[in-house]
Design a binder for these strands. Structure first.
Lengths: 155, 155
DNA sequence: ACAGTTTGCATGACACGTCAAACAAAGGAA
DNA sequence: TTCCTTTGTTTGACGTGTCATGCAAACTGT
């Protein structure tokens, strides 16, 4: 007995393929501008923003992973890559001998402070400025619904 | 002279971070269900869908790349990987000795016909069913605006 | 016909992210 | 204490996507 498949109708297709196309083009564009202008990837940007914007001078990986919503493995790999580039320093955690702390380096601070205005400008030009206030509210509402649904599946 | 940076206000932040979070969670979820259920990745799915849904028994890489909006390099890499898994066959193009044609294999056809209903169901459960008809129209409109803007930059 | 350019694709090096496995330190129960 | 489990991190293998490069076939102008 084959279950009936409900394929997507035109309106559903328009939303879904629209999302997929926007995602591909937008991510490529933002990554390209960030890399070309400042030699940073989006993950680099996220890590450095966290380290630069908060008062804490050091973060342990565990807390960073939660804050960034990254897997521990991903964070470990990425921190290792960034450390070899001199963007940050790894230090042994003082309160837990298993842990590793991360601190932003002078080069990392220079990089993020140079890149931040340009990246915000990219987001503004390619996203915010293309949409009305209503669009922005709609997008926030839509993404909130789907995000909430997906988070509820993991509990 | 430092230019003034217009950081994102709350409404803009809500839309932008909402999009980024949804993207990460949604992509991870859909990829996981597709892989776990059918051993296909999303790129696999896109390629096989194209080969299976159209009347043409073979496609040349060039045309596929345009149709999928993929870079030639990406397509070449991916076709190579899929060919080693037996999902499709590579044939010399008959009208252009430089070209390569691709045809779906029996295994590839089985895979896509098995996976398609499940994948559509994933999309329906995690996206379509979470949104109202208004949401879907809003999403289509928003993505169309941004996609059109980004495409206009490449011309 | 021939030289120069363009086109179609393959390849290698690399960055990114996932999973599974490994490991030492920490914590808890006896 | 001793044992067992959990936790924090690292590592390796792999799939994926990008860029730069290489190369042969196709095209173009003379």
């Amino acid at each position: 007995m084959v279950e009936q498949v409900r394929w997507l109708d035109d309106a559903e297709q328009a939303a879904w393929t629209g999302y997929r196309q926007m995602k591909r083009l937008l991510d490529a564009r933002l990554a390209a501008e960030l890399t070309a202008g400042f030699g940073l990837s989006e993950p680099d940007y996220d890590v450095l923003s966290l380290l630069n914007d908060t008062d804490a001078t050091r973060w342990c990986l565990k807390d960073m992973a939660v804050r960034l919503h990254w897997s521990p493995s991903r964070l470990s790999h990425h921190i290792a890559r960034m450390a070899t580039r001199g963007l940050l320093d790894r230090l042994p955690c003082e309160t837990d001998a298993r842990g590793t702390d991360v601190a932003i380096s002078a080069a990392g601070r220079r990089a993020i402070e140079l890149a931040a205005p340009g990246h915000v400008d990219s987001v503004r030009r390619h996203v915010i400025d293309q949409l009305t206030a209503t669009d922005l509210a709609d997008l926030a509402r839509i993404t909130r619904k789907i995000t909430a649904h997906l988070r509820s599946l993991d509990t």
